[in-house]
Design a binder for these strands. Structure first.
Lengths: 350, 350
DNA sequence: CGCATTAGCGCTACACCAGGT
DNA sequence: CACCTGGTGTAGCGCTAATGC
């Protein structure tokens, strides 16, 4: 149809590069119009006669046609991506969450793009801004969030929301955001209660910086439960959510001497595992001497020795629900029950 | 400027939805042409007078403009995404790898989209096909690969490559693919040698299905090193790369009785950790009774008790290099040394 | 009714041109 | 008058969806 010299330079370049068949090519090959080809391959409602449909499908197969998602996105004004922002994808907490998100996305034929904040607020704000360029249908944000509404992140989120994208966060629900509620506070409270019930009377805690929502909730919950049960929560050490933080803070606490029979509550399993390594290094026996408990129930909590007492969060399910929340306007959160799991790291005081 | 009725219906819809400012808006606001605005905000080589540049930047900021990536991608004919295909993002091996990829992508201003194969070959092929639609600059493939060149996956990869995208795999280098070489074979050989040097004379192995490249290499390397050092590798049990596989196979092996002093080589730490849990459940003592070693040096290998002897792979660096390979045509692989790390799970036979 | 025609989507990159050497 | 430099105009990119026939 089109003479060679009518090919634009741009198209020639692309052709040289590898020649993805375009819808145009398919339509020509099938001898139908662009619109018809579009309708049978990507389009929807309107029906096309069987004979045409077959011809188009055959042509598409013959040419190895795959629709260009970017072009569809510009034409449709909406792109089939959902963005996931996590602090650290190598952390099992986020890995599990991400797997749930990915499963949901796959079911809906959406693509998930992932970005890492490395727990740096500036980076976080910058990334959200960059992500805006993709015009994703939704943004799932599971980095370290504080209640601060004056942060750069909060501003970027507002801009993002103004653009029409849905934002899903965990716990902290801002004005524009849907949020998936993980009942950290109650879970921790139940854990505290159970630990008190096991006979522990004295505890210290290893948390993240004050103002970090998840940490604050867990700490407050634990305190309420543990003290309600007759225990006393002493020092609260503050670091972050990394294993090293747990190890360092524990070492530090150990330097000031900790009595046998003390319970160490860590805001996450990863932190608890770090603390355990410090205890081991210091020659203390975990369990009988110093008890440790964590939060999340990441897979390795069952593989450390002694196995770690913790609160199970159905992380993959949480991720899946977060995904649902981004695509479904009338999504309502199903119950996401947390469950205290007592293991050998808190054998109890008899 | 433009009268209301000149707005297309499509644009009206978008506007109602949330009105992302377009380049057009910015240009009008700044009183410059579209081309000039494009050059200062996203464009390239050609320079723009300072006064114009300032006006455009001010307008962009005032309107909260962010370039529409999809539109840029269609216009440029190339999209700034690299796709990462892993078996299971919740597995620490892939998590670490992904973090390296993400770091590289971030440095280059690229987006990484992630997809999960769940170790299902059909899924894998389907996903690669879907990913094609995004026209990513590169595809990093770290799912379970066999040497099979007749698989659906191989066919999809060929189609993908024909389109001009770079493909990076690990270990198995196909015709079209760049690959990042992880010297599993040598690493395992060295491990085998060291274990023999520790006095072990009898070992069993827990691997994945025959034909899975990574597993085969590690198994063969270990056999060579261990037998070369005077040991004898007995049964080789076959499952997959999951923790449960290690646990099941170990339980199975235990049922047939295993002598004290036997070494269990597992193709990955995750599998080894599964095996350890089975050993513990069976009341066997790990280390002094039955020794265990793994491969990868995932973070938890240091947190299990006894700590796991393994071969360290610089996983994040491997991911980073894989990224480099996708974007840089003359990338050459730097050395990625593996290192045997002997820990308490193989105390040695005296 | 069932197809073809075509005007966009937001952006880039070419072609072109005004004014100063 | 060639030749810069630094603007503007506009034809695409591949696709969708409203309208025409």
């Amino acid at each position: 149809m089109s003479s060679p010299e009518s090919l634009s330079r741009q198209r020639q370049a692309r052709t040289a590069r590898g020649a993805a068949a375009t819808l145009h090519d398919v339509a020509r090959e099938a001898g139908v119009s662009l619109a018809t080809a579009s309708r049978v391959l990507n389009g929807s409602e309107r029906k096309v006669a069987e004979s045409f449909r077959e011809r188009v499908e055959a042509a598409a197969k013959a040419l190895g046609y795959t629709a260009n998602v970017s072009a569809q996105a510009t034409a449709r004004g909406t792109s089939p991506v959902i963005a996931l922002l996590v602090a650290d994808i190598a952390d099992p907490y986020f890995g599990l969450l991400a797997s749930g998100v990915a499963r949901g996305a796959d079911e809906h034929g959406l693509v998930v793009t992932i970005a890492i904040t490395e727990r740096d607020p500036d980076r976080e704000a910058r990334i959200i801004r960059a992500l805006r360029g993709q015009r994703p249908q939704g943004l799932i944000l599971s980095a370290s969030r504080t209640d601060d509404t004056e942060s750069d992140t909060a501003r970027e989120l507002a801009d993002f929301a103004a653009l029409g994208g849905r934002i899903v966060t965990f716990g902290a629900g801002g004005a524009e955001n849907t949020h998936v509620e993980i009942d950290n506070r109650s879970g921790a409270e139940e854990l505290g209660r159970r630990m008190a019930g096991l006979g522990y009377r004295s505890a210290i805690a290893i948390g993240a910086a004050s103002g970090v929502r998840t940490s604050d909730d867990r700490l407050a919950g634990f305190r309420a439960g543990f003290e309600g049960g007759g225990g006393a929560l002493g020092r609260v050490l503050r670091g972050d959510f990394r294993r090293e933080s747990g190890a360092e803070l524990m070492t530090q606490a150990l330097a000031e001497d900790i009595e046998p029979g003390t319970l160490v509550f860590c805001i996450s399993d990863v932190v608890a595992i770090g603390a355990m390594s410090a205890l081991r290094a210091a020659g203390r026996e975990i369990g009988t001497d110093i008890a440790v408990c964590g939060f999340d129930d990441v897979p390795s909590s069952i593989d450390v020795t002694p196995a770690l007492t913790t609160v199970r969060i159905p992380l993959a399910e949480v991720g899946y629900q977060a995904f649902r929340a981004t695509v479904d306007a009338d999504w309502v959160q199903p119950p996401l029950p947390l469950e205290v799991i007592v293991r050998a790291s808190t054998p109890g005081l008899s």
